[in-house]
Nucleic acid binder design. Structure first.
Lengths: 160, 160
DNA sequence: TTGTTTCCGGACAGTCTTTATCCGAGTTGA
DNA sequence: TCAACTCGGATAAAGACTGTCCGGAAACAA
């Protein structure tokens, strides 16, 4: 079981967009993180479809957050990029084989599936407890307070 | 993000083995669930390596649980088949690009990774809270009490 | 001993998701 | 108008998961 690497990229982008006052092009976000520009664009499109970022086209276009970073949870980003469905998919094994359960018995979900779904819910609850604003604040502490303004300035410049 | 389908098979097998008094061959477990025998064998080998089941070779051989079903958690099975590592892998994006963090700043784990690891821990804690015995008891209630003895008898027969 | 049954491990295709890239459609600003 | 720049979806390559097969070893029965 492995989560899409795009989730990590998307989260970093959201944190960076926290400090942006103007739309930031995808190419600039890719250069900032030193990742594949075209593939990062795909993740940003997913964020756009989910309504987490707004895409501005044209010469001064780019991406910007649609709402306050405090109102965007980590779960929002994960589900936007990686999908909303559970990692576990029940194939209804109980309905197969010589002792297959009857359809009436299968109106209640399989016990194994229930346990997996509960765990999935716990996972999502945990991700929902942290916001992009929380992450941004922590990055500010870890990396030192003087780096953020410089990064913000670099992000605003349209070249180099 | 998708979990290996073998996890579901392995869990069903563990539940079935709960009611067995003798070793059950892999081929019989596969027939019971109507799944690929060779691929199921792979999952059972993983359970064996993890020490959850004992493999008995020879004519009356097969698989049996090594300890009380109450002492085997769902997490044990999941980790045996799907691995013990987190679904999220941090690629240390913060150390790349024009504003790469210094190695000293990276002694503390990345904030994004921390959140993902916390969620992973919550997921595993949830899976650890249910045992194979719990699952077996629930199956007994769902499928009706008369099916289990019949299935047990079928499992004990060495043919058909 | 011999034969049968069974597990074990590795090597091998088929299939699907993830990863990565390109080119066209649409918008902005001059 | 025009040109430059952007996003967006459709299109290939890579890797992981799924599934299969075979040879080898161990245990049991005859």
């Amino acid at each position: 079981m492995k989560m899409s690497g795009g989730v990590e990229w998307a989260l970093h982008c959201c944190v960076v967009l926290t400090g942006a006052t103007e739309p930031v092009p995808a190419a600039r976000l890719a250069a900032f993180h030193d990742v594949s520009p075209t593939y990062l664009a795909k993740q940003l499109q997913a964020l756009s479809r989910a309504g987490l970022v707004r895409s501005v086209q044209g010469q001064a276009g780019g991406y910007q957050l649609t709402r306050d970073p405090q109102a965007i949870t980590v779960l929002d980003v994960v589900e936007a990029v990686d999908g909303r469905q559970s990692a576990f998919v029940c194939t209804e094994i109980r309905q197969r084989g010589p002792f297959a359960a009857t359809p009436e018995q299968c109106r209640v979900p399989c016990g194994i599936a229930s346990v997996m779904y509960d765990a999935d819910r716990a996972w999502r609850d945990s991700l929902r407890a942290t916001t992009i604003a929380d992450l941004a604040g922590r990055v500010g502490r870890d990396v030192g307070p003087e780096t953020l303004p410089r990064a913000r300035e670099w992000m605003a410049g349209r070249s180099g």
